[in-house]
Design a protein around this nucleic acid. Structure first.
Lengths: 116, 116
DNA sequence: ACAATATACTGTTCATCACACAGCTTGTCA
DNA sequence: TGACAAGCTGTGTGATGAACAGTATATTGT
């Protein structure tokens, strides 16, 4: 079957996006802003991916949303909750272990075909 | 709903496991060995996750499997293909960009509640 | 000699998630 | 006034991690 590289890109978003969102929300922000921020950082996320994610994280009480209807366009601002902070720490730990493993593998591979 | 932290751990496996497998297969290895290796590195993977993944990657021709029935237990040895190498490089690139973003976020957060 | 355990893999089923597709309202600028 | 950007909601689908279940061979202990 054609792997359609985009498929892997999707997979790579899993696990990362949660961390991205939780990492953004130490100060309140809204969805659209996060999309643009991410884009500005050289990484693009689909709206149809981010918005549902925000609702899920809110339902799980990792983040808390509040509508701001004051001047102009209505926006939903989110902040991370204490539970969310806790989860973020643990997820970052996992990510670090993974990174260490990947580094070790890459190193091993270099030593193989390279000449060490 | 109860997020059941294990759920997030599952999510974190996504995108990582592919890289782990592709990273292991510069020299031929078989599934069970990879499981134990991973465990030895402080990260445990379910058999029921790894074996189907291997079959998928083989179907996509990112890795190539071959049964070795010589002495003793029959084992299926896998190696990475050129296409697999190509994909691995691109996935590692994505991962690096993600890591950079996460670092940046963490840094920003430290500067906030810490005192710059 | 025989049971228990470790090795090594296959197959089916299910919930979850990224994203496609579709739709809504409000503000801005020509 | 008409297009486009901003900002969000909702439904449907395919791929995936993992639970559950099963198979077969080697090793180890008694």
């Amino acid at each position: 079957m054609d792997p359609e590289f985009g498929h892997f890109e999707s997979e790579m978003n899993r696990g990362f996006l949660q961390l991205f969102v939780l990492g953004m929300l130490d100060s309140p922000t809204y969805g659209y802003r996060m999309l643009k921020t991410c884009e500005g950082l050289g990484y693009s996320v689909e709206e149809n991916t981010l918005y549902p994610l925000l609702r899920r994280l809110e339902r799980m009480e990792l983040i808390q949303g509040e509508w701001n209807v004051a001047g102009g366009r209505p926006r939903k601002f989110y902040v991370i909750t204490p539970l969310g902070r806790d989860v973020r720490v643990r997820l970052l730990d996992i990510r670090r272990v993974q990174n260490k493993i990947l580094e070790k593998l890459e190193q091993g591979n270099r030593e193989e075909d390279g000449h060490v």
